[in-house]
Simulated assay, not measured.
Amino acid sequence: MSALVWISGASAGIGAALAAAVPFPDARVIDISRRGGTPNHLKADLSDPADWIRVEDHFTQELAAYDGERVVFIHNAGTITPIGPAGGTDPDAYARAVLLNSAAPQVLGAAFLRASAHLACERHLVMLSSGAAKTAYAGWSSYNAGKAAVEQWVRTVGQEQPVDGCRVIAVAPGVVDTGMQAEIRATDEESFPAVARFHALEESGALTTPEDAAAGIWSLLSRDLPNGSCVDLRDL
């Protein structure tokens, strides 16, 4: 086996495109999601802390005796829901968004680092970020904060890695034509004042395809990037 690859949220959008374009021959690809997008599927709701424990146990079991060339975890799962002012959204949905966007990447990333620490092969941890990590959009408080947390976590953990440690990076793929973008465009201006910008991006043909985003993300594994890098595909 040339690689063991985990992709969270591989049932649709960028995650599904990543799973379809894994560049390593004979790789075993495992989707971590509720619905399942690959033959190898670990069913988990990543907004539920109880399922984080199951994912960590799975990492540990799979990697205990792994002797292949590389291991990769791409954490892609996230949600834009609920959209609207922080004080006016459904509190349960808001709490789930905070857990999925902010806490899950840190907890699962740390779990992957622990489970793979004994390996001498290539190790890659890739976190999906967004331009929203740096640009605040009214109506996206949990999403903005979650992506900012992801980037700061990556910068910090990248500094912690030894020379032969896991390579940890975050990548913003740009504005990609996914179900999340359709959900954004369907939002009213009162909940999301910047919605017209996203309609204009679609109408002008400025959206990136999931396949192009996936190709760009996979290309980062062979680039000479400093550990802890946070990059935007539009800048490369």
Score class of each variant (00 low, 15 high):
90 D>V: 14
81 T>I: 11
109 G>K: 12
64 A>I: 05
18 L>M: 14
156 T>S: 13
102 S>D: 09
103 A>T: 14
129 S>Q: 07
230 C>F: 08
114 R>T: 14
105 P>E: 09
192 F>E: 01
152 Q>K: 06
150 V>L: 05
145 A>P: 03
17 A>Y: 00
78 G>R: 03
233 L>P: 02
56 E>T: 06
38 T>V: 09
60 T>S: 13
178 T>A: 06
1 M>E: 06
67 D>E: 12
176 V>E: 00
211 E>Q: 13
218 W>R: 03
108 L>E: 06
111 A>V: 09
113 L>I: 13
94 Y>T: 11
228 G>M: 03
129 S>C: 09
2 S>Y: 07
9 G>D: 12
231 V>Y: 07
7 I>C: 07
27 A>G: 10
185 R>T: 05
70 R>D: 04
127 M>Y: 07
202 E>S: 10
24 F>P: 02
43 K>I: 10
212 D>M: 00
156 T>D: 05
3 A>E: 04
148 A>W: 05
192 F>L: 15
5 V>H: 02
146 G>Y: 08
31 D>P: 02
102 S>K: 11
106 Q>C: 09
213 A>L: 01
114 R>Y: 13
208 T>P: 00
35 R>M: 06
161 Q>F: 10
61 Q>W: 04
32 I>T: 05
69 E>P: 07
230 C>Y: 02
122 E>H: 13
5 V>P: 03
129 S>R: 03
70 R>P: 01
139 G>L: 12
170 A>N: 07
132 A>P: 04
97 A>K: 06
158 G>M: 03
95 A>T: 13
196 A>H: 10
61 Q>D: 10
84 G>L: 10
79 T>N: 05
38 T>M: 09
55 V>Y: 02
91 P>W: 11
75 H>V: 05
21 A>D: 01
99 L>M: 15
209 T>V: 01
51 D>A: 12
231 V>C: 11
